[in-house]
Amino acid sequence: MRQNPSFAMADVVELRRLVDENPWTTLVSATADGLVASHYAVLLDDDRDDLTIVGHVGKPDDLIHGLGERELLVVVQGPHGYISPGWYGDVAAVPTWNFVSAHLSGIPELLSPTENLRVLDRLVERFERGMPNPRLLWERPNDPDFVTRLERGTVGFRLTPTRIVAKRKLSQNRPDDVVETIIAELGAGSGRYTDPRLPGEMQRDLDTRRAAR
């Protein structure tokens, strides 16, 4: 991802929020057979306050990625959407795409079975807690043998990124009134190719920049 100083995202608190709110990620590795990509949910490591993440892959994805042996790129994709040039007013303009994204790179550490079970338990709890009738990992009809077999079919990892490239492109290069128009258009459903969270993310960014002036 090409970086642009105007859109660079470096605040750890904001980056942690991005990861926490967008746990479905893309894992990319360079192998002898070319690039390989997989898709898995990750969590922030609850023992750390940096950008260390934990997750798992199903076997044999650990071997395909060379997990623990070579660099892994984790792509975190936040809210994004198409921006029409018609929202800029009567000026020369072209379409663009607003987005928030982070690339976390490093060589992951493999987790022990006990650590992996804890991460799997956290993952299930994270996504089930919003359900009307949550089904947690250790609850019946699951039994310990079932959970143990589940863990054996996965490989857990912890990644403390040694390289971070993050970008928040939310029309910061446009006047406030134009940004407000874009937010209104997105909020009204004008953007067919838009994450519904994007106008809120843009409003949050605009409010933060105004408060800092």
Rank of each mutant, 00 (worst) to 15 (best):
R140D: 00
S105T: 09
P5G: 05
D195V: 00
S112Y: 11
R204D: 01
A166R: 05
R152F: 04
T148R: 15
L198C: 09
G58M: 15
L206Y: 11
V75N: 10
V13E: 14
G200E: 00
T25C: 09
S101K: 10
L170G: 01
K169T: 02
R213C: 02
D20Y: 12
N98R: 14
T194H: 13
L51N: 03
W138Q: 08
G189T: 04
G153T: 03
G68L: 07
G156A: 04
D47T: 04
E69P: 13
V54H: 09
H103Y: 15
P132V: 01
V13D: 13
I53Q: 10
P196F: 09
H80D: 11
R140E: 04
M9F: 11
E180P: 05
R135M: 14
A212F: 13
A30R: 15
L186I: 03
P175V: 06
A102E: 01
A8E: 00
P113L: 07
R129G: 02
L206G: 03
S29I: 11
E128S: 09
P108V: 01
G86T: 10
R192N: 08
R158I: 05
Y82P: 01
P85D: 01
H39F: 03
P95K: 07
T154I: 08
E201T: 12
P95N: 07
G86Q: 13
N4K: 13
G55D: 04
T194D: 06
L150R: 00
A32P: 03
R210S: 05
A37C: 10
A10L: 12
P199I: 08
R122F: 08
W97F: 00
V165R: 15
V100T: 13
R48C: 14
R158E: 05
H103A: 07
D205Q: 02
A37V: 00
R122H: 11
V100K: 07
A92T: 04
F146D: 05
D11S: 08
P132L: 02
V57K: 10
R152Q: 10
P113E: 13
D205I: 06
G68Y: 02
L206W: 04
V74P: 08
P161G: 06
D62V: 04
Y40A: 10
I182N: 01
N4D: 12
K167H: 06
R209Y: 04
R209H: 08
T26S: 15
S105Y: 15
L159M: 08
V42F: 07
D47A: 11
V94A: 10
R2F: 10
L206P: 02
R48F: 12
H80M: 15
R204Q: 07
M131C: 06
A211G: 06
R70L: 06
D207C: 03
P199W: 08
P23M: 03
G191Y: 04
A37H: 05
G130V: 07
A166Y: 06
S171L: 10
A8K: 15
R129Q: 11
E151Q: 13
T114K: 14
R209I: 01
L18P: 04
R152C: 02
P95F: 11
P161V: 02
R158G: 05
A166M: 05
